[in-house]
């Protein structure tokens, strides 16, 4: 009895450490603090107002991080997001400039509609032809969507949007940029969906074991279709903010966004093999990547260095658990061996 009682608190402590301190999110949070301290050291101009303003520059793509997290949670990938943003933005620009006095609101709706349709097409192809790999399908649609943007706008730009449209990219409520507020709202909604709803539970289930999920009565294909469509929809939202910030659009807009987005999700600890990871990690990593970029920009370090850093971060964050796992397994084997040899003696 005494023994058990003595054991209990330590077991509790152990689980507290495991539950909160050893989590990937805690490590990410630490990295975030380090990034901030680092930024503050290298640049005298790094302050809170600056950070708030900087969110304008990197927040637009982060709307796609949430549905992309869902895609990766079910063990798949969508590479076509950047092209979807471009096509949506181009559609918005072209519709507004069509010359018949089309109101901007209609242009925005068409932009969002286009993006949603793009996502829906991805989902439709993937669910009707289950044999196809998401990577190859979205590679193909990426070429298609970006190609369509070029067909529509060639090497032109479309712009001269009404003044109020700038508000999305540049407006603020008090000191807080409008885009940051929208981001926070989305973050709350998606966190709730992923963590608390039946839909979220099913996403994790599919990522963990697709076949068992099917045998448990989950409509896997329907869920996939919803997720891909949602990716498209959020890409439309991104297109609005991005187009507003740039105040004009071109077919090569949002180039390579998919990499940043996938990096943020994966760096956030969401496993590419599906079923594992938390949305909170992805949210922290959004700020890590964004603030790192801002800080380096302050001291005139080129964006190319940042490209390298993000690429390395992506690869290393995926590799670390694997390599650590290998070490653990090797250690387990060694310990087992030692134990057995002791027994033999």
């Amino acid at each position: 009895m005494n023994k058990i009682a003595a054991k209990l608190p330590s077991a509790g402590q152990d689980s507290f450490v495991r539950k909160y301190l050893m989590r990937w999110e805690a490590i990410l949070f630490l990295i975030l603090i380090i990034v901030n301290v680092f930024n503050a050291i290298i640049s005298p101009y790094y302050n809170f107002t600056g950070i708030l303003g900087a969110t304008r520059d990197f927040m637009d793509k982060t709307f796609i991080v949430f549905p992309m997290a869902m895609v990766i949670l079910i063990g798949e990938i969508d590479i076509s997001v950047a092209a979807t943003v471009a096509l949506s933005s181009v559609m918005m620009g072209v519709t507004y400039n069509a010359g018949n006095g089309v109101p901007m609101v209609v242009a925005i709706l068409i932009g969002i509609g286009t993006a949603t349709l793009c996502g829906f097409i991805n989902g439709l192809v993937l669910t009707k032809f289950k044999e196809l790999s998401p990577m190859i399908v979205t590679l193909a649609t990426q070429t298609m969507y970006r190609g369509l943007a070029y067909v529509i706008l060639e090497d032109q730009a479309a712009g001269s949007f009404p003044g109020w449209f700038q508000y999305f990219g540049w407006g603020s409520i008090g000191p807080v940029p409008f885009i940051l507020i929208c981001f926070v709202v989305c973050a709350v909604i998606f966190t709730l969906i992923i963590n608390k709803t039946k839909f979220g539970r099913r996403i994790y289930a599919i990522g963990n074991n697709r076949e068992a999920s099917r045998f448990s009565g989950i409509k896997v294909e329907k869920t996939r279709l919803i997720i891909y469509t949602l990716v498209g929809f959020m890409a439309g939202i991104t297109a609005i903010f991005l187009t507003s910030r740039m105040s004009s659009t071109r077919p090569n807009i949002a180039l390579m966004y998919e990499l940043d987005i996938i990096s943020m999700v994966v760096l956030g600890g969401i496993s590419t093999s599906g079923g594992k990871g938390r949305i909170s990690g992805a949210i922290i990593s959004i700020f890590i990547v964004g603030l790192l970029k801002y800080g380096l920009g302050l001291v005139n370090i080129s964006s190319q260095v940042l490209m390298i850093i993000i690429g390395l971060l992506l690869v290393i964050s995926v590799m670390t658990p694997n390599v650590a796992g290998k070490f653990k397994e090797a250690r387990r084997q060694r310990m087992l061996h030692d134990k057995l040899s002791i027994q033999q003696k």
Partner: peptide
């Protein structure tokens, strides 16, 4: 789902039973 708890495995087949709306 081997990585899941017993509880979540048991309830997976009929999630609609637990809670009326979209939340579990």
């Amino acid at each position: 789902l081997l990585a899941w708890s017993i509880e979540k495995n048991i309830t997976l087949a009929n999630l609609d039973l637990y809670g009326k709306g979209i939340f579990v």
